[in-house]
Design a protein around this nucleic acid. Structure first.
Lengths: 343, 343
DNA sequence: TACCGTTACGAAATCGATTTCGTCCATTCG
DNA sequence: CGAATGGACGAAATCGATTTCGTAACGGTA
């Protein structure tokens, strides 16, 4: 069995309190005693019991990551997010506990709060706005510091960390305009409300700034619930009487799918059609041609989320942490100047 | 503050012990009392304190995942592994705690053991054999159940879960032979000792079974420490007086790199050269041509590792858990019959 | 009626720390 | 010299559960 504080105090002939105070730098301990205690602790390899300490201190030095999302497919976003969060937490002597099976199950989240096994919670992928507010209220009632990720939540009291998707869509659109495109198609995904709104407003903003008229027929709302959802948008746009010279897809996988559909259809990319994705997944770099996209750094989002949560824990959640991180345009080979000058 | 067992017992006018026994189904409690207690617990939303329970029960219902590896690049292996492990753990009412910053730091691992904040440990990516044995001894001394992943460790007492890499390389080689290839090049990576050994022996075995002479000049040992390591093997093989008709790369990224080198060099794949990777990363599915590879299921490995660790915890680690999981050949478009019949 | 066994419950110990508070002793000051 | 001050330490309470063990009450039997 591991060495306890009692073993240490017996060996040294001092009280448990003195040992505790010596090791934690609190209370009055003479320099000599302190030295003896630390020395003996090292020798015996004493390590305080996490459970006992947590019980007494009423904090666990652990934070929870609740993946509030059915993990359909593997994403490199998660692969970058999780280790980054864990690493940042560890720098602050915290650890990360994963909770993957409580999507939408509020009672399980309540149990988690009441059992006090974490000091704060990061909720990855908040649900729809209304539900998020309910969740926030519940967590606030339970006095559990929490932060949402990676979507912004339009509510003053709610903490979140998200990427600047308006900027992302704007950068992409501006880039295509600078290449000479005038008919730029845009895929929306209303399911992810704020993200969709931001992206669309970035797109519209770039068009407006360039004096290009917003054309409703060039904007489609995808429905990710549909089976062949990732082929529909492409087919829709190409079937238009006057097809666009460039398409901005909502996600990289859709854009990648379009790449192969175009190949099958004999449409050369980027010569005859420019295609762009969004997210900067690893796969987007190895397609032929490599995909132009926008990258949000999952690592940076995760790191900031952890840091913000630690602040909430330290400040007792006095004021909400709200952060929007810049994104990066990755211009690659799937986009080029349009053949006919974009007319 | 959360409801404690004392609050419950006060409200009901029974003792704490009775409440505890009622909720945990131990000891003698009359059906009537039990009903009253469960009812009140539900009403008040009582949830036992994790710290108090851990302290008394001497177990935490948590397992640790120690990523004993510098996470160089994002890998979809991790993205699939971690959620899978967390989910399987949760089915058994355990949770997963991540430790990403203790690669090679044995004292930190010892602290983790002694603080008893986890009931068992999964070590992702064991170090070299000798160090792994040392680690195993240390963990055994600390009476900490543990299992290594995703590499086998050739030692009877050590628990691990790994993929069958001998089978993987054999399947790939057999497949190429069945296509008509006779000169099949093979890239080794001595750095990952057992994995490399298994893969190479699967390759050699397939050749032998087909009566093809093992040609040393077709086998190269890569050095992943070198900067341009992923281009070297390809260049080496293509510079041979009599180049191979097919190349088996050690990893998908190397094979993908070879795909673009071949394009640059005007070598058509698969018509003039067959290329295969290994691991089945997501990217391998979107290259042009799509990459033939072997997939090991990170999800299955992780799930089995957790299940095995839970057995070790339950059995007090009586006998080592050693599991080798089958892999899956993914024949895709980067391999085909050789132009000249493979002569 | 006296005795015994069973049932249902509670008092108290326990897990291993932290923290509060009181005490002892040596100085220092008036 | 007596009282006040403060440094160093320990006894005991505390955190919130679980578990052991003792006992009251009850019913059945000799």
């Amino acid at each position: 069995m591991p060495v306890t504080i009692e073993d240490l105090s017996n060996k040294l002939g001092v009280s448990r309190s003195t040992v505790s105070k010596a090791l934690n730098d609190r209370g009055d301990v003479s320099p000599r005693t302190k030295e003896r205690v630390t020395q003996a602790a090292r020798e015996l390899g004493y390590q305080p019991s996490a459970a006992a300490r947590s019980l007494r201190r009423q904090r666990t030095e652990k934070i929870g990551l609740v993946v509030n999302y059915p993990i359909r497919r593997v994403s490199d976003f998660l692969a970058e997010l999780i280790p980054s969060m864990a690493t940042v937490a560890e720098e602050a002597e915290y650890n990360l506990i994963l909770y993957t099976s409580m999507a939408g199950q509020t009672e399980r989240l309540i149990s988690l709060c009441r059992s006090r096994e974490v000091d704060g919670i990061i909720i990855a992928w908040p649900p729809q706005f209304h539900e998020t507010v309910v969740l926030h209220r519940m967590l606030t009632d339970e006095r559990m510091p929490h932060i949402f990720l990676p979507r912004r939540v339009p509510h003053d009291d709610i903490s979140y960390v998200a990427a600047d998707h308006q900027q992302g869509a704007r950068l992409l659109t501006e880039y295509l305009i600078s290449l000479g495109h005038g008919r730029i198609a845009f895929e929306r995904l209303p399911e992810v409300y704020e993200t969709d709104y931001d992206r669309h407003s970035g797109y519209a903003q770039a068009l407006r700034a360039a004096g290009i008229k917003y054309d409703e027929s060039l904007v489609i709302s995808a429905d990710s619930a549909a089976a062949d959802y990732d082929t529909k948008s492409f087919q829709h746009f190409m079937a238009l009487p006057d097809p666009p010279s460039a398409i901005l897809f909502f996600t990289d996988p859709s854009a990648i799918r379009a790449l192969s559909l175009a190949r099958e259809g004999g449409i050369r990319i980027p010569q005859e059609l420019s295609v762009a994705g969004y997210d900067g997944v690893l796969s987007s770099g190895v397609t032929e041609p490599a995909l132009t996209t926008v990258r949000q750094s999952a690592g940076a989002l995760g790191a900031l989320a952890v840091e913000s949560l630690l602040k909430l824990i330290a400040n007792d959640g006095l004021e909400a942490q709200q952060h929007i991180l810049p994104v990066e345009l990755l211009p690659r080979k799937s986009t080029a100047a349009p053949a006919n000058g974009g007319a």
